[in-house]
Design a protein around this nucleic acid. Structure first.
Lengths: 207, 207
DNA sequence: TCACCAATCTGAACGACGTCAAGATAATCT
DNA sequence: AGATTATCTTGACGTCGTTCAGATTGGTGA
């Protein structure tokens, strides 16, 4: 009634699936992941607690839809970072910084994304086809010397992804506050951490 | 009654705090984190649902105790890996492998550990005083050239920790199954990923 | 020794949660 | 139009975290 779109509203509500996902994201931003109950989502969308079950099998499937949107937006954030060729040194670090900043700016969403992944023991398939994973790998490939083995590229991508995810989950931790100010801000801290990943190379028997 | 210890049982139950933590860990191992309700823990320990509240402020505080044990055992696992000087090349990778293997062998416990950390936005304090964090830093220090700056050591430790945690959370992901067999097992895969962290060094403007 | 006190446990209750079944309502199809 | 199907509501069930009043028990001081 209140927000009736003039045109085709296919069913009672309009587009409840969409509204539910939006409501879920609003709750995530406003009150955090702990407040994200199915009932609260339905309440926010203005429907009864049972209504969501006509659009999602259960709560997990709704969260899946939310996570899917999150991964898509992460793709976009990385693509944007990759496109902005400010400097050509530390391009990988730029990508890492963009990744962690996305997690920092959308902490609840990022948490839902990985909670779902852990439950499924898999990253979403979309990452393998033009998604964020490919962007990391392609950036690595651009900068690697020619003739780098396929498997090395894959392993390096995984390594970079793990480092990014680890940092994304810990970026808000209080233990790093001192270092952040010491280095002149959060992004400087991020870049510094990424660049120190190289210290591993000194101890590893790499070809 | 059934498992009455012959000696000093200070109160009604004996040592309910201890029994509750044990019960929680048993549930974690058996049925996973989703089944870990306070009521289930009390049930497992053979007390009423309200009994735990005389030993823990709320559910979070019980999980805190469980997580505390987990961090302690992680300390021990890393110390053990550090002590076994099988080969002197790739020592840092050995430590990383030990870290991830702990997470792989105690997935539910590891999840509780980090869930609690994320809720508090901080790693436990015990890590700063002889804990796992120090073991990583000390191992790095042993292998670094003399005169490495304090801050570089700190940043490298953080970098290593983030990479380890990221890999620990994703080690079970299905996407890596093919690579694991291709490399001849899970540990070989782990070591390979750690050793490819060095590819970052090639793109970073490091001194 | 025994009465008292504080610590510990139980039982019942509250509100909130995820989920389901039955019925009402409204859009679509013929 | 009527029949069908998708959608939403109402009400209920079992479980959860948590609280509170009361029962029980171990330790303490008279």
């Amino acid at each position: 009634m209140s927000t009736a779109p003039a045109e085709s509203r296919p069913y009672h509500h309009g587009d409840l699936s969409r509204a539910l996902v939006d409501a879920a994201r609003k709750i995530l931003e406003t009150d955090g992941p702990a407040a994200l109950s199915l009932r609260a989502v339905a309440r926010e969308a203005g429907v009864s607690p049972a209504a969501p079950y006509h659009h999602f099998k259960d709560k997990a499937e709704l969260l899946e839809a939310v996570a899917h949107e999150g991964w898509h937006e992460l793709d976009e954030a990385l693509a944007k970072a990759r496109a902005s060729t400010d400097g050509d040194h530390g391009r990988m670090s730029d990508l890492g910084v963009a990744y962690v900043c996305f997690a920092r700016d959308n902490p609840a969403l990022y948490r839902v994304m990985y909670d779902r992944s852990r439950d499924k023991d898999a990253l979403p398939d979309q990452m393998k086809e033009g998604g964020a994973y490919c962007q990391v790998r392609d950036t690595l490939a651009e900068h690697a010397e020619d003739g780098v083995a396929e498997i090395d590229l894959e392993l390096a991508t995984i390594a970079a992804w793990c480092a990014g995810h680890g940092l994304a989950e810990m970026i808000g931790f209080k233990q790093f506050a001192a270092l952040k100010t010491q280095l002149g801000g959060e992004e400087a801290f991020l870049r510094a951490v990424f660049e120190h990943l190289g210290m591993f190379a000194k101890f590893a028997p790499q070809d």
